[in-house]
Amino acid sequence: MTTRRARRLCGPILFATLIASGSSHARDLTVVGFGGSLQDAMRTAYFEPFSKRSGAPLIEESYTGGIAKLKAMNQSRTVDWDVLQMDENEMTLACDEGLLEPFDWKSQPNAADIIPQVKAPCGVGAFVWSKVLAFDPAKTPGVKSWADFWDLKRWPGERGLRKQARMTLEIALLADGVAPDKLYETLGTKAGVDRAFAKLDQIKPHIRWWVSGAQPVEWLAAGNVVMTSAYNGRVAAANKDGRAFTMLWTHQLYSADYWTIPKGTDKLAAARELVAYMTSADAQKRFAETIPYGVTNGRASALIDPKIQPDLPTAPQNMAGALMIDTPFWVNNEDELQQRFERWVAQ
């Protein structure tokens, strides 16, 4: 019912207020991630050792992105998240709207080691992730590029893509032969967007859209799709569990996720301490060895087990032809392109 939805909309604010007025007990430091095998790795590498070292309990929560809850907390002045993992575009928006604590580099002993590309006004890079083409070489041998993703004759069957404009339009243009360094220039024009949608039209009936990062790997395992876009860490986790999927690093799409601190937290000092711990070289080494995402501490790269290195998005051989996702482009154009994408998908 519509009313129910209305409650859902305003509910969090009201609910948070009620909870806040009813409880005055001390809250433990709370860290929020994206769940799944990713958060499992964070627990092993960061949360448990940090909690053991500081002697104070650490509460974990997970969410699926979006800045609505952050905004609701901020408006009701009941911020009970202290450290938050965020995608780069959402961090930029939240930072602009004043929902995040400006990042204080002086509180960070590792500041000098952090690679400069992931130093943001409101956050520090947590890890570098990559979206790759994944397939089962036993079923579809010989796939070499995103262009092959479109080859329905040679490799018939459904394909998995994430149900969003961001990265999907890029993949379409890469498959259409646009060079990575010209990609956002092309996508910045109406003709470029039309071209991306025209390319997607060619395989539209064969696309199965995924929403959460765990789905594409499950579908690949179950044979629902013959190839899919997927996050490299999730594919690696499946391979660790006995699968033998191939990841195609050619034209991988990569970006970073960030650690941020919501504005208004009463545990600022402890939150900064946790972020400092999670960006230290030793902790990041443990993290990358648990799940192969790229590290943001320059010194950590050298410490990582050489056997893991080829699985990292940041390995030099994997970076050839890689496309860095242009966050400013998406911050400006996502409203419009996502709407067109939603319409196109629903047709």
């Binding site: 930072c95 602009d96 709207e97 004043g98 400006n332 409203d335 419009e336």
Partner: peptide
């Protein structure tokens, strides 16, 4: 640098893509 500018940028970006970058 104020949050209200961010909110205005979001609103203006609905009207015209790219307004966010233009304002900042």
């Amino acid at each position: 640098g104020e949050p209200r500018l961010g909110e205005a940028s979001r609103r203006l970006n609905y009207e015209r893509s790219g307004y966010r970058a233009l304002l900042s």
